[in-house]
Design a protein around this nucleic acid. Structure first.
Lengths: 222, 222
DNA sequence: TAATAAAGTTAGATAAGCCTAACTTTAAAT
DNA sequence: ATTTAAAGTTAGGCTTATCTAACTTTATTA
């Protein structure tokens, strides 16, 4: 399971597939075009790579068919995800990065090949269960705790909830979240909603804020 | 000086040039073949890359001429070296790697692009001056403390000296060094030398060891 | 169900890094 | 100083990962 030497690019394909299948519950297959959009390359490029990944037994795929990860592919992809999230945690916990600065650097660090490195990092961080964005970190066996989470726009008027994670990890979005004084764990109450333009009025720490539906869809709450 | 986007490969060329020119005192130019040997590629490959590096103003080079780093190239190469040595220090100090395990991983980590990351790492490690092999770490301005060091085989019989660094960073060599109980700072006395086969008899912690000239040439002492 | 749209595939190009084989220039040695 | 050896270069190919443009298959919808 170790020692199958994957390129930077191959690892990115597996990571995308993890996101599109394993992590987006209730879907275990994905199409060429959707994967192309996710990886920001053209479908023709994906098509070529699918043949290679199938050859290496990392994915299940037939001509004109849907794509899914094999067990080997799932484990390899999970390891990349584990590395990404552990590095993000390291950057925030040990190097005082803010949560909106870590994604790009972790995109690079996740491709460092060293089992020992990642296991020691896990230990240094005291085996964290969640990364700075509230996402669960897969363990060394590739197991992940997938919790059912609602997005903020699914919460009813008058209800209170707690921010547990963010969907969008871009610095633009996260800085916007910061501006509202929100952090993982913050309590949010839905004051009211506008029918016409779908805006939400929130109460956070006794202050009122108005946000868009798009914004609310990117916050996971319980 | 920041933001010139260099590839993994280009960075390795600059790092090699730093080693072959700046660090190996009294030589500021190098040839295509020598660089090829150092990078473990063929001279023809180096020749192609020289054109690219010259185009990017990282090296001084004319057809059939010698190669040297420009100021831009020197700074970029120094930054790679700085990253390599800081990461090695991190692995030993924070993740309990032994000094013979760090080189390969640092070869990967040195190519992570993030000025903030490396400066924060420097700070986390308390601005170390030397890496685990006793080599000086360039500062954020690309300045390095080049000290005049002798190798163990240059020491006269009866003299005592102290191990300050190792030349060879391979795990095979470093494990051999470990086996003799030597660490950076160890005191070594030259008991005697064999004329015939150039062996050295050493006294380390009241114990006698016999080592080859090749071995002694890879230990820096003062 | 036949036409059309969407999804997926193929063929042919390009750029980066690498190679081998043949060639040219410079340096060394008789 | 001429020959030979060493160093350096060029031309042409290969692989990986990407692209565009044209084509095929599957799905949708009128």
């Amino acid at each position: 399971m170790e020692d199958l030497h994957l390129s930077f690019t191959e690892e990115n394909y597996l990571k995308s597939l993890i996101h599109l299948t394993v992590l987006s519950l209730a879907k275990i297959e994905v199409g060429t075009n959707e994967l192309a959009v996710n990886l920001n390359v053209k479908p023709a490029t994906v098509n070529d790579m699918l043949k290679k990944l199938k050859e290496k037994k990392l994915i299940n795929y037939e001509r004109y068919g849907k794509i899914s990860l094999t067990e080997i592919g799932r484990l390899a992809g999970m390891e990349v995800l584990r590395k990404h999230r552990l590095w993000e945690t390291f950057l925030v916990e040990k190097l005082d990065f803010s949560w909106d600065e870590v994604h790009e650097v972790a995109e690079q660090l996740e491709h460092i090949h060293s089992r020992k490195l990642i296991d020691r990092l896990d230990s240094l961080l005291d085996f964290p269960k969640f990364d700075p964005h509230g996402d669960p970190i897969p363990n060394a066996k590739g197991e992940i705790e997938i919790l059912t989470r609602k997005t903020l726009n699914e919460i009813e008027i008058g209800e209170k909830c707690r921010l547990v994670a963010v969907k969008d990890n871009s610095s633009a979005f996260l800085q916007y979240v910061n501006k509202l004084g929100l952090t993982i764990g913050s309590e949010i109450e839905i004051a009211s909603k506008e029918i016409y333009d779908e805006l939400l009025h929130l109460i956070i720490d006794d202050q009122t804020f108005t946000v868009s539906k798009k914004f609310a869809e990117n916050l996971f709450v319980v």
